[in-house]
Design a protein around this nucleic acid. Sequence first.
DNA 1: CAATGCAATGGTAGCGCTGTCAATAATTGT
DNA 2: ACAATTATTGACAGCGCTACCATTGCATTG
Lengths: 343, 343
Amino acid sequence: MGRKRTKSGKIRLTEVAKLAGVSPITASRFFRNPDALSASKRERVDSAVKELGYVPNLAARALASHRTEVIGVVIPSLTNSVFADVLRGIYDSSEQSRYSIQLTNTRYSILQEEKLLRLFRAQKPAGLIVTGINQTTESRAILETMDCPVAQIMEIGDSPVDMMVGFSHYDASFAAISHILQQGRRRIGFLGARMDPRVQRRLDGYRDAMKAVSLFDSNLVVTTSVPTTVTLGGTLFADLLAQAPDIDAVFCVNDDLALGVLFECQRRQISVPGNLAIVGFNDLEFMASAVPSLTSVRTNRYEMGRHAVTMVIDAIEGRRPQEPVLDLGFQLMIRESSTSQTA
Amino acid sequence: MGRKRTKSGKIRLTEVAKLAGVSPITASRFFRNPDALSASKRERVDSAVKELGYVPNLAARALASHRTEVIGVVIPSLTNSVFADVLRGIYDSSEQSRYSIQLTNTRYSILQEEKLLRLFRAQKPAGLIVTGINQTTESRAILETMDCPVAQIMEIGDSPVDMMVGFSHYDASFAAISHILQQGRRRIGFLGARMDPRVQRRLDGYRDAMKAVSLFDSNLVVTTSVPTTVTLGGTLFADLLAQAPDIDAVFCVNDDLALGVLFECQRRQISVPGNLAIVGFNDLEFMASAVPSLTSVRTNRYEMGRHAVTMVIDAIEGRRPQEPVLDLGFQLMIRESSTSQTA
DNA sequence: CAATGCAATGGTAGCGCTGTCAATAATTGT
DNA sequence: ACAATTATTGACAGCGCTACCATTGCATTG
């Protein structure tokens, strides 16, 4: 008993084929592999598609082909502005392709991540982009049976599930501390919030850099698992001052904290960089226009998103990169807040 | 070249039904309308699903039912931190439902918006969330033939396509200016960047509030179509000072600009609020911890996202709100930057 | 010239699920 | 007790597309 609604206007591939005078399968090929058609048929199908305003039914296509044109993305946070740039890169790249993005958010929950990965595996995405390299054993197992290209982003490490795009948080942190040391500062505090694996590695870099010059002191480190805010930067800085009143520099694991520290310094009349150097991480836009301008570690987040999508799509289409790990590096943006007043 | 993969392990609804000893259609109903099953069958299907680890094939479901469980979201920018909060609300709400989010980005392009809406219409989403109320005639026509619930978010107006969640940018701006006037300031500058329709309405509110007390002066207004940054706030403020050196307050259409103005004041040794009051818009988190703390208009962005999804889902499931327009209002967060020094 | 290869095209047969409506079982009222 | 009503359930027939393989036509080869 027919649902007449079906006929209501919906153009099917069959109609296109009929108008073009070809078989449905040829019309189908027009979309998936136009080069396989002769020029004449290609043109006939093309104009039939345009004349009828045909739009493929993606559900039917997915059902018949056992594939989707969806790239899954798993990130830990929508709030963290770091991911905004990555996402922009991801969406920008995907828009030029046939693939669409399915974005999901773990809220830094390991369990949520496992659940999402399981969901993705069941839905057979064409590709997958996940954040970080510290998946649980379970998550890793799911990723390895994913049956599609997988890119891990934000950081790089030794054993990619498949591909990686990122940079070394350890090296970036180490470089930042080295710079501060070079400026003659000795008592460098460390401020960390929401200690996810990447932030943890920044702490490792800090610790090793300090230990290398025998300047490490656990009183210089203040961390919390609370999510980052500018206000929190001020609070943590106050804690740090209480623990180590003689600090002459602060390294913050992100720029929001650094801005909070700057404000707290203004509140307490601590001169920056006179009495205190401040260095942040990520190089958000405001760092350059703060007073004094704030030194930070620039990370190539937008490019990370773009490359991740490009690599995944290339892999889907059989063009695997010869080098599965892409290091996008970082740049130390040295500004007033960490250079001597005289400079 | 067989792809035997098809059979490889995939559990179909038929298998579940067989194990549960029911017909496939009954098993199907278990997912879509469990209340229609008797308790005994429901349990049998439930355990069969669990035992086999069955996961529904969404493509098949969409093809057979002519519906999807996708809610489309159209926003103009992924960078603008205002949308991060809205998106968080949207994703948080959707995760508790069966619906998934398909996010798209117009980059403030009218044409891109039309293209995306056309695409969505063809894919028959279960619901749609779009930004703003100023669609083109063409976009509006597409929305009206969308055949699914549509929520317009970020602002409210008189003729919703279907539903609306937002607040009045005009009123918010008017209220902010009234507050500044109340503080005895007379020469209130206006700084605007990326003049999208909502920002435009904030300008309208400013203009009317100033005209109401005969204090409007076009020299007090500086706008640009360039996207907002903190740095731009400083630049625009410099332009404003050049045009109107006697200003005693600045109203910025967003908090990034306000922060840029604050930094520029620090650079130029302009005392805030002594010589200049600063008021921003959105109440981003840093506003409260700046020195001095910065007055802003708090908008309920997270709630906006949550409500939009909830309303759309309710409408999809037949529970239409009696009132299609939801005004989430705003709150003026009065802080040091706009109050007299003596206060 | 037949044998061979290859490019272009089409026929057949589902992909896994649900809409429709009919059929059956359970419940109620009088 | 029996008809009328309601709750459950199932049979059937596709949804619109593509994988697979077969077929056709034509150029190439020895």
